[in-house]
Each structure stands twice: as C-alpha cells, then as structure tokens.
C-alpha cells in the first residue's frame, strides 16, 4: 500500500506542477485530497492492516498529504499573484489629466488684506468694530473736532443724502461710536467702506476702504504710538520697516502726524516709487484731540490715546501693484480670479 500511496502522490504532484490554471489544479485537489478523494480511499483501507503496517502506512499517507498540500498552496499563491499582477498591469491611468469639477473661487483682495490686518490687531488685543456707512453730521464731523466751516465739509468732498445724513467720508466716526460703546481703556479697529465725492480715474475712487485704529488709556505717548505703528507695519509687510513721523494736520488729533515708511523698493536710496525721496507716505495718525475724547464721553484729563487711519485700498494696490483703482469694484472676474 505504501508503494501505491507513493505512486499516487507522485502522479498527483506531477499534475499539480503541470496545471495551467487554478481550475485544473482544483480538480486535482478534489480528486486526491478531497473528502472522497484517493487519499481518503487509502485511509478507509487502513483498517484492514496489521498494527505495524498501519503505522507505516499512516506515515506514508500523512507524508503524501502534507507534501501535496504544500505543493498545492505554493502553486495557488503563484496563480493568485499572477492574476493580481495581470489585473494591475491592465490598470494604467493618466494621472496627469487636470482634475475636473469645481475649482475653488477667490476672496476679493480687499477682503484678504482686511482679514490679515484684523487678525494682526486681534492678536494685539484690539476689538474689531463696525459702523454705519450712512452717518450723521455729528459723528462724521462735529464729534471729530471738525468745525462747521472746515473745508472737508464742502459739497465737493462729501456725499449728502436726503434727510440730512451723509455717506461717511472716513472710518473715524467709529472712534466716537467705539468710545461710547466700550468706554476707557480701549483698543479698537474699524475697517470699512467710505465715500468721497470725487471724480473717478485710475488713482481716484468715490468708494474705497479704510481701517481706523484707536487706543485709549492713561498716559499714551508719541513713543507708544511709534512702537505700535512700527510693530503693526512690520506685521503687515512681513519685514522690519523703518518709519518716521512728520507733522500733519487733522482736526481730530493733536499733535497730528503723517507716518512715512522707508521705501521698500529702493531701501531709502530714492527711486520713482518714492518720488526720489526715500520715503513713502503711508498713514495719518496722532494723539487723540481732547475734544474728540470728550465727544466719546471720556475725560481727557484722565485718559489720552492715539488714533490712526490706514488706507486699505491703497495697501492692496501697493501689494499687488494694481495700476488702476477701478478694477477693485469692477466685478470683472478676469481681474478677481487672479487673487
């Protein structure tokens, strides 16, 4: 019987090796290793053998079974690997085709710069306030120490509305609203849309964006203002900037300054951008005029402050080198898609 088992095993092994696909091999497996297969048949005949013969036959039988199973598993893995390889080999894909579907839109450049500056100020403890675009004469002028006969009130600068109101000519009214709402001490900024009655051309708009800033506390000095402006501008321009203050007249501050930054194009050597002066005028600022503090309900004998106004529209034009201010409110997607 041992010889028969060995012969069977040999024959089966040869057929496994010869199998060209999984089905052929499976047929051999069922025929030899299956429940009703040849090896099982030998098992049944074992009972008739002597004890001694049975041990030897059992050994032979198990040996045949083990070696056939191993050969079978090996070959099966080979078939599976080949099948997977064949599938993968057929799955070439052009991954360089640009993805289809929705291309993300864009935020308006003014929104982008506004967000940047807002988070910068927020990180320095400033509250972000809003104010109405339609204002009263009181908030836009009187409360800001702009007397009734100041040239800024002339018809050519201000849009007047029926009902005695006006379109705010600056974000400064929010200084007053902010002081009234928050009380001292306070730190606030107010970005927003402002209006001037001006003819529109590549560098002038009747609608543009400003950002007002104000800090009120005990003993606020010019040295503090300088520190803040320097920190702020380094944050905006993401580099160390050199600033200077020079006298500037604005009724709501005393003293009032024009703040210049050293030209970043030429580094102060002088170039067309800075009109060969080495400096670029950037923002008006100053110590808050006592009358303005009073309008905001704050006692100027106890508190002082500084305020500044940043031209967001101008900043956007500087950053992206935009040559015509009218693009910003054109709604033209050829322009807006670039941001």
């Amino acid at each position: 019987m041992i010889a028969e088992v060995e012969a069977l095993a040999e024959g089966a092994l040869a057929r496994i090796h010869a199998a060209v696909n999984l089905d052929e091999m499976e047929a051999v497996r069922v025929e030899v290793l299956g429940r009703k297969g040849s090896l099982a048949e030998f098992g049944k005949r074992m009972g008739k053998l002597s004890a001694e013969e049975r041990v030897a036959a059992g050994k032979a039988l198990n040996g045949a079974k083990t070696s056939l199973e191993a050969a079978f598993d090996l070959k099966k893995t080979a078939f599976e690997t080949a099948a997977l390889d064949a599938r993968l080999a057929g799955e070439w894909l052009d991954l360089t085709i640009p993805p289809q579907g929705i291309v993300p839109g864009s935020l308006h450049p003014l929104t982008q710069i506004q967000n940047e500056i807002e988070s910068l100020f927020f990180s320095m403890g400033f509250t972000i306030l809003d104010g109405p675009e339609v204002e009263t004469e009181f908030y836009n002028f009187d409360a800001l120490n702009i007397p009734p006969d100041h040239p800024a009130r002339d018809m050519q600068d201000t849009f007047w509305l029926e009902g005695g109101h006006l379109l705010r000519t600056h974000t400064s009214p929010v200084q007053i609203r902010g002081m009234q709402r928050l009380g001292p001490p306070l730190r606030m900024i107010a970005p927003g849309r402002v209006f001037r009655n001006e003819e529109v051309d590549p560098s002038h708009e009747h609608t543009f964006y400003q950002l007002e800033g104000m800090m009120v506390d005990r003993d606020v000095s010019i040295a503090n203002l300088l520190y803040f402006m320097k920190t702020l501008l380094s944050g905006i321009f993401k580099r160390d900037v050199t600033v200077r203050l020079r006298p500037g007249f604005f009724p709501f501050v005393e003293p009032g300054f024009e703040l210049d930054i050293q030209c970043m194009v030429c580094g102060g050597e002088g170039c067309p951008v800075c009109k060969h002066s080495g400096w670029v005028e950037l923002l008006p600022c100053g110590l808050v005029h006592p009358n303005v503090l009073r309008s905001g309900g704050i006692n100027p004998d106890e508190y002082g402050g500084f305020a500044f106004g940043l031209g967001l529209t101008r900043l956007v034009m500087m950053r992206y080198l935009i040559d015509d201010i009218r693009w910003l409110q054109s709604g033209d997607l050829r322009f807006l898609k670039q941001f």
Binding site: I102, P104, G105, T111, R193, Q329, G331, L336, K337
Partner: peptide
C-alpha cells in the same frame, strides 16, 4: 462660497 467655486466681488452702493 469660495470653496464652492464662487469669486467674491465688491459692487458700488
């Protein structure tokens, strides 16, 4: 809105 492919515009008042 921008994630959904919309571009932001600013129009006049």
């Amino acid at each position: 809105a921008t994630q959904q492919g919309f571009h932001e515009v600013y129009n006049y008042s």
